[in-house]
Every structure is written in structure tokens, then in C-alpha cells.
Amino acid sequence: TCQHSYSFSNEETELFQTGWKNQTIEDEIYSSSILKAFNYTTSDESDTYTYAGEFGTYRGGGYVYEFRGRLSDMKTNLSALHQLDWIDEKTRAVFIQLTLYNPSVQLLMAVTLLAEFLPTGGIYTTARFEPINFYTFTSILQLVCTIFYIFFIIYFIIIEIRLLFKLRLKYFHQFWSIIQLGIIGCSLGSAGVYFWRFQETNRISHLFEQTNGYIYINLQLAVYVNDILTFLLGYCCFFSMIKFVQLFRFNQRVSLFAETLKYCAKELISFSIMFAIVFISFLS
């Protein structure tokens, strides 16, 4: 039989006793970690964020069991959770999150294992491994290149502002002006996200010093920030490569190739539209 699918509106947030019961069972005594596993934990308490799976987007809160203590105790607790049907027919997603650290290369690894329980009764599993390196500048040369890049961006900003005041609205009608704005925007965005990541790194380091590493430190926000920084740097490289093509306009062959593309632009656009329609219909 089909069960209800997960959504933010029908998510269970109540506090339960062991076995998903509302009444306290006095005959059986369980550890505090098992009792806590049947109590809803908010995203602020667990320091987790919304996660997008293959079949749904899940809120950061939930019912959490933390792997802590001796191996024998964890095996006993897992057996007890299995007997108490901690994962039952109403479960829609099970997350296993852990953080690994390789001191030889100073690399952190955020691991997320997800099992999604479909309304039809199937189970779909996914795994995500996110390596994170908070040490941005590994050499003096890298730091010097970054400083030069910042000065170049400031120089380009001044030039583009002068052109904007000179050309006014005509400035936005030029193709290379849009490319230049893309480079400047992605560069400034990367700088802002970098400082955001630096702040998140300090928060994680401070939390690690306070707890001496005895609690689970969630790197989900750090992974999201690192992904945003990677996307911005990728777009910046993309716009820079297009801008680099402009330097070849003095080459006769490249100039001839550009004029050819300009001459047959309408035919290429119409062909691209037809090709996209056929290609997308083939994929669907």
C-alpha cells in the first residue's frame, strides 16, 4: 500500500516516549541517547540545514541518534532502537552524517549517507562526499597572485564606471560590457563568499577548541558556502575565457571566423532551436 509522501506541512515534530508511544513505560529503562532519539530535535539544536535529496527536500530537524561512547554500548543501543521500531513505515528519510579528517593533507571530508523511503514502498540510497580545505593560501605565490587579481578588478571597476557615465544606457547594449560586468560581479561575489567561509572556519575552529572534538561538528553550512564559492569562481573563469577571445580579434583568421559567425548568426540560432527541441524530446 502507498503511504503519504514527505512535505514540510506533514512533518512530525512531537515528543514521544520509546516505541513512539505517548505514555511512559516504567518497567523498561533505556539510556538517555535512546530516549533522546524519540524526541524531536530542531535544526537550531542540531546545527543542521535543509537538505535536497533525489525525491524530496528535507528540513534540518528530526529525530536524532548520536553515535557516541563505547562500541559495545552503540551496538546495544542500535539493537534496542531496532526492537523499538525507531525506523518504521512512517519514516521517510534516514540520514547518516559524519566528518572525517586527514591530517597529512589537512583535508576535511563531510560525508552524508541518505536513504529515502518512497511512498510506494521502495528505498533509494544516495551518498555525498564533500572534501573541504579551509587553508586557502598554501604558498606565498598564491597570495601574491590573489592580491594582483584584486588590484586588477579594482582597476577594471574604475574603467567600467567611466564607460558607464560616458555611454549611459548604450553601455548595456554592448556584448563585451555584459561580459565585463559578469567578471566583476563574480569576482566581488567570490570575495564576499570567501570572507563568509573564513568566518565559518573560525566558528568551527572555536567550537572544536571548546569541545576538544568530543561532539559531532556539522560541516553542512561550510559545504554550502564552499559550493557557492566554487560556482562563482567557475563562472568567473567562464566569463574570463570569453573575454580572452576578444584579444584574438587582431588575428586575421580569428577575425575571419568571427565575421563568419556574425554573418550566419540567424541560421545558427534557428538550427540551435530545432536541435534543442529534438535533443530535449529525445532525453525525455
Rank of each mutant, 00 (worst) to 15 (best):
C2F: 08
S9W: 03
N10H: 03
N10W: 02
L15P: 02
F16W: 12
T18C: 15
W20E: 05
W20S: 04
I29A: 14
S31D: 15
S33L: 15
I34Y: 09
I34P: 03
A37D: 09
N39G: 07
T42E: 07
T42P: 00
S43E: 13
S43I: 00
S43Y: 02
D47N: 14
T50G: 04
T50Q: 08
Y51N: 03
T57R: 09
T57D: 14
G60S: 00
G62M: 01
S72H: 02
L78C: 07
A80V: 07
L81A: 09
V94F: 04
L98H: 12
Y101T: 05
S104M: 06
L108H: 05
L108E: 07
L108C: 02
L113E: 11
F117Y: 09
E130S: 14
P131F: 04
N133P: 00
F134L: 06
Y135F: 06
T138D: 14
I159M: 12
K166W: 13
L167F: 15
R168W: 10
K170F: 13
K170S: 13
W176A: 12
I183D: 06
F195S: 06
E200C: 05
N202L: 10
H206Q: 13
F208G: 11
E209N: 15
Q210C: 05
I215W: 07
I217V: 06
N218W: 01
N218Y: 02
L221W: 04
L232Q: 07
Y235F: 15
C237G: 14
F238R: 00
F239A: 08
M241C: 13
I242S: 11
F244G: 15
V245Y: 15
L247F: 09
R249W: 05
R253S: 13
S255H: 11
L256S: 14
E259D: 13
C264A: 11
L268I: 01
M274S: 13
F275I: 02
I280S: 09
I280K: 04
S281Y: 11
L283G: 04
